[in-house]
Computed example of a mutant assay.
Amino acid sequence: MNNEIRLANPQDAAAISQVIIQSLRQSNAQDYSAEIIAQVETSFSTESILLLLSQRQVFVATLDHQVVATASLDHDIIRSVFVAPDHQGSGIGRQLMTTLQSVARDANIKILRVPSSITAEGFYLKLGFQKIRDEFHGVERTIIMAQRLSPD
């Protein structure tokens, strides 16, 4: 299979939206209510993704030219890390995170932060992130995590 990690472009917006919504509905739904999932989904429509492309560095992972994962870097904050359910556990998320960490190091960022879902906390812990605190947006719990980057 042909695997690539690259910066996203506007033509990827619909596929990115689909990956995120699938992941929310299948993976995150184990830890969040249907109401929270529906609320979060509204932030990831194709139109919302197009806007995000102009605000932060959005990356995609593709397999055979199909978008199967996404993650973005917003200065020193990693956001919107999602892997299509059929590809979770295959190492694609780890590859995306390695790319974002490298981009952050190149930008001389010393500490990366990530607002993690309950679902992804274990993933980030395995990558060396540490829990800083919990934040609540209404009833939605987000775990703020951080990682000190060492120079390459």
Results as ranks from 00 to 15, higher is better:
60 V>S: 12
113 R>M: 08
1 M>W: 06
33 S>C: 03
77 I>A: 02
16 I>F: 01
19 V>W: 08
110 K>I: 00
22 Q>L: 03
54 S>L: 11
25 R>E: 10
144 I>L: 15
129 F>Y: 13
74 D>C: 10
96 L>T: 13
83 V>A: 01
112 L>N: 11
20 I>R: 01
47 E>G: 12
45 S>K: 00
10 P>C: 10
149 L>E: 03
76 D>G: 01
6 R>M: 09
69 A>P: 13
29 A>Q: 02
144 I>K: 14
147 Q>E: 14
133 R>H: 06
2 N>A: 13
134 D>R: 06
99 T>P: 09
3 N>G: 02
96 L>H: 09
55 Q>N: 06
55 Q>S: 04
105 R>K: 15
13 A>T: 02
86 D>G: 00
37 I>E: 03
32 Y>R: 08
143 I>L: 07
39 Q>R: 15
4 E>H: 15
141 R>G: 09
141 R>T: 07
25 R>S: 08
150 S>Y: 05
147 Q>P: 13
113 R>Y: 14
19 V>N: 01
26 Q>T: 02
83 V>L: 02
75 H>S: 08
18 Q>G: 01
85 P>R: 00
88 Q>V: 01
109 I>A: 05
113 R>W: 15
85 P>W: 05
67 V>R: 09
82 F>R: 05
111 I>P: 09
73 L>D: 02
11 Q>S: 11
54 S>E: 14
45 S>C: 01
98 T>F: 04
51 L>M: 08
108 N>G: 05
90 S>N: 07
71 A>T: 06
140 E>I: 04
81 V>A: 04
62 T>W: 01
7 L>N: 07
127 L>Q: 13
125 L>T: 04
127 L>V: 12
126 K>T: 12
40 V>T: 08
91 G>V: 08
2 N>E: 14
56 R>D: 00
37 I>H: 01
53 L>E: 14
36 I>T: 12
152 D>G: 10
116 S>P: 09
71 A>Y: 07
114 V>Y: 07
128 G>M: 06
92 I>E: 05
97 M>V: 01
75 H>D: 05
136 F>N: 02
39 Q>V: 11
121 E>W: 11
70 T>H: 05
15 A>H: 00
58 V>C: 10
127 L>D: 13
101 Q>W: 02
78 I>F: 00
12 D>W: 07
34 A>E: 12
15 A>Q: 00
35 E>Y: 04
2 N>W: 15
94 R>T: 06
135 E>D: 15
134 D>N: 13
38 A>D: 13
48 S>N: 11
51 L>Q: 04
142 T>F: 00
70 T>P: 12
92 I>S: 08
31 D>E: 01
